[in-house]
Protein backbone atom coordinates (compact mmCIF):
# COMPACT_ATOMS: atom_id res chain seq x y z
CA UNK A 1 0.00 0.00 0.00
CA UNK A 2 1.27 3.41 -0.90
CA UNK A 3 0.24 6.88 0.20
CA UNK A 4 0.14 8.71 3.50
CA UNK A 5 -1.13 5.70 5.49
CA UNK A 6 1.33 3.24 6.98
CA UNK A 7 0.84 -0.38 6.10
CA UNK A 8 -0.52 -2.47 8.96
CA UNK A 9 1.53 -5.44 10.06
CA UNK A 10 -0.01 -8.88 10.10
CA UNK A 11 1.22 -9.16 13.70
CA UNK A 12 -0.04 -6.05 15.48
CA UNK A 13 1.41 -4.48 18.63
CA UNK A 14 5.05 -4.21 17.61
CA UNK A 15 5.50 -0.79 19.22
CA UNK A 16 3.83 -1.82 22.45
CA UNK A 17 5.68 -5.13 22.77
CA UNK A 18 9.03 -3.53 21.94
CA UNK A 19 8.38 -0.83 24.53
CA UNK A 20 7.49 -3.47 27.10
CA UNK A 21 10.59 -5.49 26.20
CA UNK A 22 12.90 -2.53 26.55
CA UNK A 23 11.30 -1.34 29.79
CA UNK A 24 11.40 -4.82 31.29
CA UNK A 25 15.01 -5.49 30.30
CA UNK A 26 15.95 -2.02 31.49
CA UNK A 27 14.37 -2.53 34.89
CA UNK A 28 15.49 -6.10 35.45
CA UNK A 29 18.92 -6.11 33.84
CA UNK A 30 20.28 -2.69 32.98
CA UNK A 31 19.34 -0.68 36.07
CA UNK A 32 20.93 -3.10 38.60
CA UNK A 33 24.06 -3.40 36.48
CA UNK A 34 24.25 0.34 36.01
CA UNK A 35 23.94 0.79 39.76
CA UNK A 36 27.12 -1.25 40.18
CA UNK A 37 28.96 0.97 37.71
CA UNK A 38 27.53 4.09 39.34
CA UNK A 39 28.72 2.97 42.75
CA UNK A 40 32.19 2.34 41.39
CA UNK A 41 32.28 5.66 39.54
CA UNK A 42 32.69 7.38 42.89
CA UNK A 43 36.04 5.66 43.37
CA UNK A 44 39.30 7.06 42.12
CA UNK A 45 41.23 4.90 39.67
CA UNK A 46 43.86 4.24 42.30
CA UNK A 47 41.25 3.09 44.85
CA UNK A 48 39.57 0.94 42.24
CA UNK A 49 42.74 -0.91 41.32
CA UNK A 50 43.72 -1.14 44.97
CA UNK A 51 40.40 -2.89 45.60
CA UNK A 52 40.44 -5.28 42.65
CA UNK A 53 44.09 -6.18 42.38
CA UNK A 54 45.08 -7.34 45.85
CA UNK A 55 46.69 -10.78 46.01
CA UNK A 56 43.58 -12.16 47.70
CA UNK A 57 41.22 -10.85 45.01
CA UNK A 58 43.49 -12.03 42.20
CA UNK A 59 43.64 -15.47 43.78
CA UNK A 60 39.84 -15.53 43.94
CA UNK A 61 39.62 -14.55 40.24
CA UNK A 62 42.03 -17.32 39.34
CA UNK A 63 40.04 -19.90 41.27
CA UNK A 64 36.63 -18.74 40.00
CA UNK A 65 37.55 -18.39 36.35
CA UNK A 66 39.87 -21.40 36.32
CA UNK A 67 37.43 -23.78 37.97
CA UNK A 68 34.50 -22.47 35.91
CA UNK A 69 36.38 -22.87 32.64
CA UNK A 70 37.59 -26.35 33.58
CA UNK A 71 34.11 -27.43 34.69
CA UNK A 72 32.48 -26.05 31.54
CA UNK A 73 35.11 -27.73 29.35
CA UNK A 74 34.58 -31.10 31.04
CA UNK A 75 30.81 -30.66 30.76
CA UNK A 76 31.19 -29.90 27.07
CA UNK A 77 32.78 -33.30 26.50
CA UNK A 78 30.70 -35.43 28.83
CA UNK A 79 27.51 -33.45 28.25
CA UNK A 80 27.85 -34.20 24.55
CA UNK A 81 28.20 -37.91 25.29
CA UNK A 82 25.16 -37.85 27.60
CA UNK A 83 23.08 -35.93 25.07
CA UNK A 84 24.18 -38.27 22.28
CA UNK A 85 23.23 -41.37 24.25
CA UNK A 86 19.85 -39.90 25.20
CA UNK A 87 19.03 -38.90 21.62
CA UNK A 88 20.46 -41.74 19.60
CA UNK A 89 19.74 -44.85 21.66
CA UNK A 90 16.72 -46.46 23.23
CA UNK A 91 17.23 -48.43 26.42
CA UNK A 92 15.34 -49.25 29.60
CA UNK A 93 15.37 -46.42 32.11
CA UNK A 94 16.10 -43.80 29.49
CA UNK A 95 13.40 -41.48 30.77
CA UNK A 96 14.73 -41.72 34.32
CA UNK A 97 18.23 -40.81 33.14
CA UNK A 98 16.77 -37.99 31.07
CA UNK A 99 15.02 -36.65 34.18
CA UNK A 100 18.21 -37.04 36.25
CA UNK A 101 19.95 -34.58 33.96
CA UNK A 102 17.59 -31.87 35.16
CA UNK A 103 18.24 -32.60 38.83
CA UNK A 104 21.05 -30.01 39.24
CA UNK A 105 18.62 -27.44 37.76
CA UNK A 106 15.89 -28.22 40.25
CA UNK A 107 17.95 -28.95 43.35
CA UNK A 108 18.58 -25.99 45.66
CA UNK A 109 22.28 -25.25 45.38
CA UNK A 110 22.80 -25.52 49.14
CA UNK A 111 21.38 -29.05 49.05
CA UNK A 112 23.75 -29.89 46.22
CA UNK A 113 26.64 -28.50 48.28
CA UNK A 114 25.72 -30.50 51.35
CA UNK A 115 25.23 -33.68 49.33
CA UNK A 116 28.55 -33.30 47.52
CA UNK A 117 30.38 -32.49 50.74
CA UNK A 118 28.90 -35.57 52.40
CA UNK A 119 29.97 -37.71 49.45
CA UNK A 120 33.47 -36.36 49.00
CA UNK A 121 34.55 -35.60 52.57
CA UNK A 122 37.24 -37.78 54.12
CA UNK A 123 34.64 -40.11 55.58
CA UNK A 124 32.20 -39.82 52.67
CA UNK A 125 31.16 -42.67 50.38
CA UNK A 126 33.48 -41.55 47.61
CA UNK A 127 35.98 -39.47 49.58
CA UNK A 128 37.13 -42.41 51.72
CA UNK A 129 38.17 -44.30 48.57
CA UNK A 130 39.87 -41.33 46.97
CA UNK A 131 41.90 -40.42 50.05
CA UNK A 132 44.24 -43.45 49.94
CA UNK A 133 44.88 -42.64 46.30
CA UNK A 134 46.06 -39.19 47.34
CA UNK A 135 42.99 -37.28 46.15
CA UNK A 136 41.18 -35.04 48.57
CA UNK A 137 38.10 -33.45 47.04
CA UNK A 138 36.08 -31.79 49.80
CA UNK A 139 37.49 -28.47 51.02
CA UNK A 140 39.98 -28.25 48.17
CA UNK A 141 39.98 -26.64 44.72
CA UNK A 142 39.06 -30.02 43.28
CA UNK A 143 35.85 -29.80 45.33
CA UNK A 144 35.01 -26.46 43.73
CA UNK A 145 35.54 -28.01 40.30
CA UNK A 146 33.28 -30.96 41.18
CA UNK A 147 30.50 -28.66 42.41
CA UNK A 148 30.68 -26.48 39.31
CA UNK A 149 30.69 -29.50 37.03
CA UNK A 150 27.61 -30.81 38.81
CA UNK A 151 25.60 -27.63 38.40
CA UNK A 152 26.71 -27.00 34.80
CA UNK A 153 25.94 -30.37 33.21
CA UNK A 154 22.25 -29.75 32.33
CA UNK A 155 23.09 -26.58 30.43
CA UNK A 156 25.22 -28.48 27.93
CA UNK A 157 22.93 -31.50 27.65
CA UNK A 158 19.73 -29.52 27.23
CA UNK A 159 21.32 -27.20 24.66
CA UNK A 160 22.65 -30.07 22.58
CA UNK A 161 19.65 -32.39 22.70
CA UNK A 162 17.37 -30.51 20.25
CA UNK A 163 20.22 -30.05 17.79
CA UNK A 164 21.14 -33.72 17.91
CA UNK A 165 17.48 -34.63 17.40
CA UNK A 166 17.48 -32.53 14.24
CA UNK A 167 20.67 -34.16 13.03
CA UNK A 168 19.47 -37.12 11.01
CA UNK A 169 21.32 -40.44 11.34
CA UNK A 170 21.16 -40.69 7.57
CA UNK A 171 23.90 -38.08 7.39
CA UNK A 172 26.27 -40.38 9.22
CA UNK A 173 25.22 -43.31 7.06
CA UNK A 174 25.74 -41.18 4.00
CA UNK A 175 29.22 -40.21 5.15
CA UNK A 176 30.03 -43.86 5.79
CA UNK A 177 28.76 -44.88 2.37
CA UNK A 178 31.00 -42.25 0.82
CA UNK A 179 34.01 -43.84 2.48
CA UNK A 180 34.43 -41.79 5.68
CA UNK A 181 35.64 -43.72 8.69
CA UNK A 182 34.10 -43.16 12.14
CA UNK A 183 36.57 -40.51 13.20
CA UNK A 184 36.10 -38.59 9.96
CA UNK A 185 32.31 -38.80 10.36
CA UNK A 186 32.54 -37.32 13.85
CA UNK A 187 35.04 -34.60 13.03
CA UNK A 188 33.86 -33.58 9.56
CA UNK A 189 30.13 -34.28 9.65
CA UNK A 190 28.77 -34.23 13.19
CA UNK A 191 30.98 -31.72 15.01
CA UNK A 192 30.57 -28.86 12.51
CA UNK A 193 26.81 -29.24 12.84
CA UNK A 194 26.69 -29.18 16.61
CA UNK A 195 29.60 -26.82 17.25
CA UNK A 196 27.51 -23.64 17.69
CA UNK A 197 25.16 -25.27 20.19
CA UNK A 198 28.10 -26.98 21.89
CA UNK A 199 29.67 -23.56 22.38
CA UNK A 200 26.34 -22.18 23.58
CA UNK A 201 26.15 -24.97 26.16
CA UNK A 202 29.72 -24.27 27.17
CA UNK A 203 28.98 -20.55 27.54
CA UNK A 204 25.87 -21.20 29.61
CA UNK A 205 27.64 -23.70 31.87
CA UNK A 206 30.56 -21.32 32.26
CA UNK A 207 28.35 -18.34 33.08
CA UNK A 208 26.37 -20.40 35.56
CA UNK A 209 29.53 -21.68 37.24
CA UNK A 210 31.01 -18.22 37.49
CA UNK A 211 28.10 -16.96 39.56
CA UNK A 212 27.62 -20.11 41.63
CA UNK A 213 27.75 -19.60 45.37
CA UNK A 214 25.40 -21.91 47.25
CA UNK A 215 26.94 -25.28 46.49
CA UNK A 216 30.55 -24.11 46.46
CA UNK A 217 30.58 -22.57 49.94
CA UNK A 218 29.83 -25.98 51.43
CA UNK A 219 32.49 -27.95 49.63
CA UNK A 220 35.27 -25.41 49.14
CA UNK A 221 36.33 -24.73 52.71
CA UNK A 222 36.36 -20.99 51.93
CA UNK A 223 40.00 -20.42 52.76
CA UNK A 224 41.39 -17.09 51.54
CA UNK A 225 43.99 -17.39 48.77
CA UNK A 226 43.30 -21.10 48.41
CA UNK A 227 39.66 -22.04 47.99
CA UNK A 228 37.86 -18.72 48.06
CA UNK A 229 35.68 -17.96 45.04
CA UNK A 230 34.79 -14.44 43.94
CA UNK A 231 31.10 -14.49 44.99
CA UNK A 232 32.19 -15.52 48.49
CA UNK A 233 34.80 -12.78 48.59
CA UNK A 234 32.10 -10.26 47.66
CA UNK A 235 29.94 -11.51 50.53
CA UNK A 236 32.96 -11.30 52.86
CA UNK A 237 33.59 -7.71 51.79
CA UNK A 238 29.97 -6.82 52.42
CA UNK A 239 30.18 -8.37 55.87
CA UNK A 240 33.15 -6.08 56.52
CA UNK A 241 31.07 -3.09 55.34
CA UNK A 242 33.46 -2.61 52.42
CA UNK A 243 30.64 -1.94 49.97
CA UNK A 244 32.78 -0.15 47.41
CA UNK A 245 35.40 -2.89 47.40
CA UNK A 246 32.67 -5.50 46.92
CA UNK A 247 31.11 -3.53 44.07
CA UNK A 248 34.48 -2.96 42.39
CA UNK A 249 35.15 -6.71 42.39
CA UNK A 250 31.62 -7.32 41.07
CA UNK A 251 32.19 -4.84 38.24
CA UNK A 252 35.41 -6.58 37.23
CA UNK A 253 33.56 -9.90 37.20
CA UNK A 254 30.83 -8.34 35.13
CA UNK A 255 33.22 -6.96 32.53
CA UNK A 256 35.27 -10.15 32.41
CA UNK A 257 32.15 -12.31 32.03
CA UNK A 258 30.80 -10.02 29.34
CA UNK A 259 34.05 -10.16 27.38
CA UNK A 260 34.24 -13.94 27.68
CA UNK A 261 30.65 -14.39 26.55
CA UNK A 262 31.30 -12.01 23.65
CA UNK A 263 34.30 -14.07 22.66
CA UNK A 264 32.27 -17.26 22.81
CA UNK A 265 29.53 -15.68 20.69
CA UNK A 266 32.10 -14.67 18.10
CA UNK A 267 33.40 -18.23 18.14
CA UNK A 268 29.85 -19.48 17.60
CA UNK A 269 29.46 -17.18 14.64
CA UNK A 270 32.75 -18.36 13.23
CA UNK A 271 31.84 -22.02 13.70
CA UNK A 272 28.57 -21.58 11.79
CA UNK A 273 30.64 -21.06 8.66
CA UNK A 274 31.48 -24.76 8.73
CA UNK A 275 27.90 -25.95 8.92
CA UNK A 276 26.97 -28.10 5.94
CA UNK A 277 23.26 -27.31 6.03
Amino acid sequence: MTGPFKSRSILPGFGLSLGFTLAYLGLIVLVPLSAAFLKVSGMSLHDFFAAVATPRVLAAYRISFGASLAAAAVNMVFGLIVAWVLVRYSFPGKKIIDALVDLPFALPTAVAGIALTALYSRNGWIGRWLLPLGYEVAFTRLGIFVALTFIGLPFVVRTLQPVLMELEPEMEECAASLGANRWQTIVRVILPEIAPSLLTGFALAFARALGEYGSVVFISGNMPMRTEIVPLLIITKLEQFDYRGATAIAVVMLIASFLLLLLINLLQKWSRRFQAI
Binding site: A50, P55, R56, N222, P224, E239, Q240, F241, D242
Partner: peptide
Amino acid sequence: VYALTQDSPHVFASPI
Protein backbone atom coordinates in the same frame (compact mmCIF):
# COMPACT_ATOMS: atom_id res chain seq x y z
CA VAL B 1 41.22 -4.36 61.92
CA TYR B 2 39.14 -5.38 58.90
CA ALA B 3 40.21 -2.18 57.16
CA LEU B 4 43.83 -2.65 58.23
CA THR B 5 44.06 -6.14 56.81
CA GLN B 6 42.44 -5.35 53.45
CA ASP B 7 45.72 -5.28 51.56
CA SER B 8 47.73 -7.64 53.70
CA PRO B 9 49.42 -10.54 51.95
CA HIS B 10 49.37 -12.59 55.15
CA VAL B 11 46.34 -11.67 57.27
CA PHE B 12 42.87 -12.08 55.77
CA ALA B 13 39.51 -11.27 57.25
CA SER B 14 37.34 -14.28 56.53
CA PRO B 15 34.21 -14.38 58.70
CA ILE B 16 32.33 -17.67 58.67
